[in-house]
Nucleic acid binder design. Structure first.
Lengths: 134, 134
DNA sequence: GTAATTCCTCTAGCGACTAGAGGTTCAAGG
DNA sequence: CCTTGAACCTCTAGTCGCTAGAGGAATTAC
């Protein structure tokens, strides 16, 4: 049996976060001691490891909830969740790339001379110069 | 003079969001009508446009606050903020790229057959298989 | 003059935690 | 057995950037 601190050390998830996960119904302590402290089995430890890893991959707690509730033989749904997340990641990468391009353009707009207002500020304000749609 | 709705239509920032920006000290109405409704000048409209654009670029309200409080001649600080944000964007892109690579690896781990547990679930749980550091 | 629309303030909620107060239990050493 | 100190407990509130809704007042168009 592991204490909440043991779980934290093993998985790298902070103690208050573990309690938060319990609160939102992602994990449960297998037992409590006489004095009301949480005790976890190895399965509990592994479940938290799974959650940690999925979080690191950027999955929402909702998506993780769906994943842990899944029938392990349900390949279709598992794939669907993973595919959806992959699409989401690609979407975010695309948007970041556009942001990067525009920020570079904006920064190039300032020649660094000191006798006028900085074009960066102007460029930030000027929607019309902007290449991508808002 | 523009009403809050006019500002919203011109900038694409929703009305409650404009009020929120006022609450956190980013903008102010130039006047109020007899009946307590906000009225904005053209300068107010432009300020909101600036904020909108900066938000679209992913800057935090804190960063925007710093930007609008800036001396327009202060090129150094303006550049510093923009550079910092650019670095942040690149950092996020890098992390997303690693996530993408690992998700693809995980998805490849499942051959799609129906007579065992899905390797995707196992791969999610198995920290050891994971290429990048958590 | 009335009806539709817009506006007002205020409070509470979202996700995923984090921080702190104030108190209790556990494990180890003497 | 007893004390100490670390780890634990619950509870509340704060973070960011909004968004939603209640309940009511002002403005605008016809």
């Amino acid at each position: 049996m592991f204490s909440i601190g043991d779980l934290s050390r093993h998985t790298g998830v902070k103690v208050p976060t573990i309690r938060y996960y319990e609160q939102v119904g992602l994990i449960e302590a297998d037992e409590r001691t006489e004095g009301n402290q949480r005790r976890y089995s190895r399965a509990g430890l592994e479940r938290l490891g799974f959650i940690r890893h999925a979080r690191d991959l950027g999955l929402s707690l909702d998506a993780i909830r769906a994943l842990v509730a899944l029938d392990p033989a349900d390949h279709a749904t598992t794939h669907a969740i993973a595919r959806e997340h992959l699409a989401d990641i690609r979407d975010r990468m695309g948007r970041l790339a556009r942001l990067e391009a525009e920020l570079k353009r904006i920064m190039a707009a300032c020649d660094g001379s000191h006798d006028h207002e900085c074009n960066i500020l102007e460029a930030f304000a000027d929607h019309g110069q902007c290449a991508h749609e808002h």
